[in-house]
Amino acid sequence: MTTLPVPGTSTDVRPRKISRKSTGADAVFIHTIRTVGTVVLVITGGVGLFLGWQAYPTAQNYGLGFFTESRWLPEADVVGIASVLTGTFCVATVAMVIAFPLALLTALYISEYAPAFLKNTLVSLVDLMAAVPSIIWGLWGFFLIMPHAAELAMWLDRNLGWLPFFDVHDADPNAAVVDTVISQYSFSMFCAGIAVAMMVLPMSCAVMRQVFSQTPEGEKEAALALGATKWGMVRTVVLPFGRGGIIGGTMLGLGRALGETIAVLLILSPSFEVKGRILEIGGNTVSALIAGRFGDADDTQLSALLAAGFVLFLVTLAVNTLAAVIVNRSRSGAGTDA
């Protein structure tokens, strides 16, 4: 016989106690993994704090002059990053001016124009391009591109020399004998910027392509169904939808361009002059300065180099954070069900 429980007879009804606390192996797991997280936090945060801490004595020694002094003379104890900061921004600007249109066009081609059977291969190729070491791009820029880039620079100076940033001092672009003048146009920030552009291009392109590929199919088809041409569809649907990705990808590329070392070190002949004349020989960037001057630095100058690195890190961090905010705030991902 089955007895049914009679409701109300049991006087002692208490809800089962539920604990979210981990026990046994789980507790060990959580603690271990938390420790790993802490170790990584200490390492990565430690690097940042160390850099900031090293910047302090530099601020004491050189004061604000650190940002306005353009020379780097360890013997005379005169160091400053005015020229290298300008150089860093010039090289990065040149790189982005070249890389942005190419990355945008490539991303559009892969996501909208490429035949379907090529698409995956092209995506892999762009990723491969991102994995090509920077020293390879340095060699490519130095030996293959620089002779042509110098000629182009000369042509630009001849025809657009009235623009301040295309001007080159001490060189006559109309000279009859090219060989003696051409060296004034080589080893310039323009040449370095081309090599850096090839490095940052795949990164920007990947971000842009990813955002373009999230464009709602329904909206694209709606545009086509209303009679838009392919370009009309791209202009009115894909580009507005991907605006956040375009800006964010460009800024991520900019963040990488600011920190590039080895290609710049190979191509640019170092000089410490605050200038925006990108076609002219000479210039310097923060990372190339560190790579070139760490060997002969004493303790004070080493911390000055670290401070320069810290400034570079802060600039890169600001650019990257802005990029992340822009990408996240864009419409990307919203409305994909439509």
Binding site: F50, T261, F294, L306, F313, L317, V319
Partner: peptide
Amino acid sequence: YARVVRTVVEAMTALPSIVAGLFIYT
């Protein structure tokens, strides 16, 4: 706490490689 770790780790992806080298060097 994990969010703090994530923020710091994401921030440190901006570290230029030359500065990482300079850190170990110093």
